[in-house]
Design a protein around this nucleic acid. Structure first.
Length: 274
DNA sequence: CCCCTATCCTGAGGGC
DNA sequence: TGCCCTCAGGATAGGG
């Protein structure tokens, strides 16, 4: 579900309310979402900890705690992390609740339970196989056309597969990958290493424009996604290709093509993305 | 290394 | 109205 812009929106929403707050109590409804450490240790280690930072890395939410370690949350396909007043009834599939010293409640809701919560330092979690290798942040200043070119040059896999590969570029999912390829006018199934330098530059710029615009619009609420306060985003209202297979291309009017690339539904324009 | 498929789950939507 | 099928924004394991 949530890609970089959705996770970033949540982090920005929650940050002012979480930083400085103390975890007063923890309740876990469905233990399978707690991946590390074990449930008992998770319940033991969290209460009393103070949240020092609230940040995004790739599609992970990282709540840095006092003392060593962070609480990492990955939302999977259908997860949400919201701050609620405790008297508001919890929605179905609320699996974890953190009651805060402020009285508010941080709730992890995830119908499909593909998401997960983990507690520890990055090296610990990497050693436990819970935190995968993560590539460059596409919104960082280090994400230059040269850098993207180097990433793409290393493989002949389809471009889209590389953009979705979190170990190479962190944060892009199915929606914004298709949007970026369209904006850059490159075909998502082209071998990554085959892009010309000017196409790489266009793609680099397109990825940043697409992600920034989606953040400005507070994320795409196509199904389950909600912001840090449970409200829907508006980014899905201005998507150019995602979910529009068969509809006319906004640039040339040709019906948008839909096929499977890198195992994912992919929408693109045969005319504009040669 | 690459690529595809199945898998973890629930819910929404379409066809009949 | 209901049943069945397919599909979904993610990530990973296993097979060819």
């Amino acid at each position: 579900m949530p890609e970089l812009p959705e996770v970033e929106t949540i982090v920005r929403d929650l940050r002012p309310h979480l930083v400085g707050a103390t975890v007063a109590a923890v309740e876990v409804g469905h233990p399978s979402v707690v991946r590390h450490p074990g449930l008992a240790e998770f319940l033991r280690a969290l209460p009393g900890r103070r949240i020092e930072r609230c940040q995004r890395r790739a599609k992970f939410i990282a709540l840095r705690l006092d003392g060593p370690g962070s609480l990492f949350v990955h939302l999977g396909m259908s997860g949400t992390l919201t701050l609620d007043r405790p008297e508001v009834p919890a929605r179905p599939h609320t699996h974890v609740r953190l009651r805060l010293g402020s009285g508010a409640e941080l709730r992890y809701v995830d119908p499909r339970r593909f998401g997960r919560l983990m507690l520890g330092t990055p090296p610990e979690l990497r050693a436990a196989g819970q935190l995968p290798p993560l590539g460059i942040e596409p919104l960082s200043p280090r994400f230059t056309a040269e850098r993207l070119g180097a990433v793409l040059a290393s493989t002949r896999r389809p471009l889209k597969a590389v953009l979705l590969d979190q170990a190479r570029i962190a944060g892009c999912g199915n929606i914004y990958t298709d949007e970026s390829c369209f904006l850059a006018r490159v075909h998502p199934a082209r071998p990554a290493a085959g892009l010309r330098p000017r196409e790489v530059r266009r793609l680099r710029d397109a990825i940043r424009v697409v992600l920034r615009k989606a953040i400005r619009n507070r994320g795409s609420s196509i199904a389950d996604y909600r912001d840090g306060f449970g409200a829907r985003g508006a980014a899905h209202e201005s998507l150019l290709v995602y979910g529009r297979g068969g509809a006319p291309c906004v640039r040339c009017g040709l019906p948008l093509a839909q096929s499977t690339v890198a195992g994912r539904t992919t929408v693109y324009c045969r005319g504009c993305q040669a």
